[in-house]
Each structure stands twice: as C-alpha cells, then as structure tokens.
C-alpha cells in the first residue's frame, strides 16, 4: 500500500517536473527571441557561431550525404529496373532527399554533433560560473551567449540540409550513371521535370527550418537549464540528443501529413 502510494507520488512528481521544464523552456525561448533583436547591431556574434556550427558539422554532413545518396541510387535502381523505369532514378533520388532524407537525416546528425556540443558548452559555462560572471559584469548571457547560438542554428540547418541533398544527388548520380549505366541525360532531365519548386523544395526547406528551430532550442535550453556539475552537464547533453531526435521524427510525420494534406 505504502509502496503504491509512493510510486503514485513519484509519478506525480515526474509529471509536475516535466510541466515545469516545459514552462521554463517556453519562457526561455521568449527571452531568447527578445534578445535576438539586439543582435541586429551585433550580427558578427551570430556569424561567428554559424561558422562554429559549420566547422563542426560540415564534414559529417557531406560524407553522410554522399553515402545516403549512393545507397538511394543502388536501392532505387534495383526496384526501378524491375519495371524498366530506371530512367527515373534521378527523380527518385532527388525527391527522397529533398522531401525527407535531407531535412531528417541532417537534423539527426545536427543534433548529435552540433546540438550536443552546444549543450555541453553552455552547461560547462554555467558550471564554471562563466555565465554568472558575465551577469556580474552587467552583460546578459542570453544576449551574448545564447541568442547568437540559437540564431546560428536557425540559419545553419536549412543550409546544411540543402548541402546534404545536393551531395546526395551527386552520390546517386555516381552510382546510377557511373556504376549501373543509367543514361545521364535521362537522369537529369527526369529530375528537372519531376521536382516541383513549391511542393518539394520549399516544403523541404520549411521542414529543415522547423527542425533547426527545435533542435537548437532544445540544445541551448538544456545547456542553460543544466544542473551545474559535470554529471548534470553529461545528463543534459544526453537529453539534447534524445529529445531532439524524438522531436524531429515526430514533427516530420506531422509536417509531412500537413504538406501532403492526406490526413
């Protein structure tokens, strides 16, 4: 009996905790967005961070994009050749990348590489009193540290997803045209005809922007909200990757169904 009550109480505590964190995260987002206005004058802070995110993620994005494209080329060819439609390989590869794999895989890689690094960096700054020190120097850490990183994530994600898709198409071309002998002219012309700017490209960019927003928000919030010890920062980093990945996959389903208008 006592045990049942205890676990019920625990459940309640966990639930309240979660609600509290959500509330804090929302307030935090509000403050970050307000602080972002100040950065119009100090945009070099944002540019610096875009550069940092780029350095962290560019290589992994390019390599992954290439291989995902190559796999798409192989798999697509194998299926299409059964219907004698291997000429459409370019279209299949491009659509899969632009609509789905580009935004989603980039976001997952982004969360694992840049997101976790952001959380760890901010969490450690908190644990070593650098954020408190900044506040004592009359500098708002939300403006100076958090908002530039948040904006950088927003800007970087769609760019990275676009790069991922572009290099993926090249990977598909490499396998399809180079290895399996699909006609190069057909590969490109089918792609040009079949990929729609609004339905495919714009929707893909919207997805990657939303994922960038969610991943960066989670990353900076977890860092800022971390328990200021080494264990606390480790846990926060962990949470960033888990929550970001889950949010990306869930949101992908919601966004896709909205965009296709089928549910």
């Amino acid at each position: 009996m006592e045990q049942a009550l205890n676990s019920l109480a625990n459940l309640g505590r966990i639930f309240l905790d979660a609600i509290g964190r959500l509330g804090r995260a929302a307030l935090f987002l509000f403050e970050v967005v307000r602080a972002a206005r100040v950065l119009v004058r100090r945009h070099f802070l944002v540019i610096q961070q875009v550069y940092a995110v780029g350095v962290l993620t560019l290589l992994i994005i390019l390599v992954s994009g290439l291989f995902v494209g190559m796999v798409l080329g192989l798999q697509g060819y194998n299926t299409l050749v059964r219907f004698g439609a291997e000429e459409s390989l370019g279209l299949v590869v491009a659509l899969s990348l632009v609509r789905e794999l580009g935004p989603v895989v980039t976001a997952l890689l982004f969360a694992g590489r840049a997101g976790s690094a952001l959380t760890a960096e901010i969490g450690l700054m908190k644990a070593t009193e650098q954020l408190a020190g900044m506040e004592m120097m009359a500098v708002n850490p939300i403006v100076r540290v958090i908002a530039p990183r948040f904006l950088a994530g927003l800007v970087a994600m769609p760019l990275l997803a676009a790069l991922f898709s572009a290099i993926g198409v090249l990977g598909g071309h490499l396998v399809g045209v180079g290895l399996l002998g699909v006609d190069a002219g057909a590969f490109w012309s089918q792609m040009q005809d079949g990929v729609d700017f609004n339905d495919d490209i714009v929707n893909g960019v919207i997805k990657s922007a939303v994922f960038g927003f969610i991943c960066t928000w989670i990353a900076v919030f977890e860092g800022y909200d971390a328990v200021p010890t080494s264990e606390g920062v480790a846990r926060a980093t962990n949470r960033t990757v888990v929550y970001s990945s889950l949010s990306v996959l869930t949101l992908d389903f919601i966004l896709t169904s909205l965009m296709l208008g089928e549910i």
Binding site: L124, M125, T128, E129, Q130, A132, G133, M136
Partner: peptide
C-alpha cells in the same frame, strides 16, 4: 571576483 575565477575558457 568568483571563488573559481570564472575566466571565459
């Protein structure tokens, strides 16, 4: 002046 110094690493 913080106990730890709190320099920006």
């Amino acid at each position: 002046l913080f106990q730890t110094g709190a320099l920006f690493t």
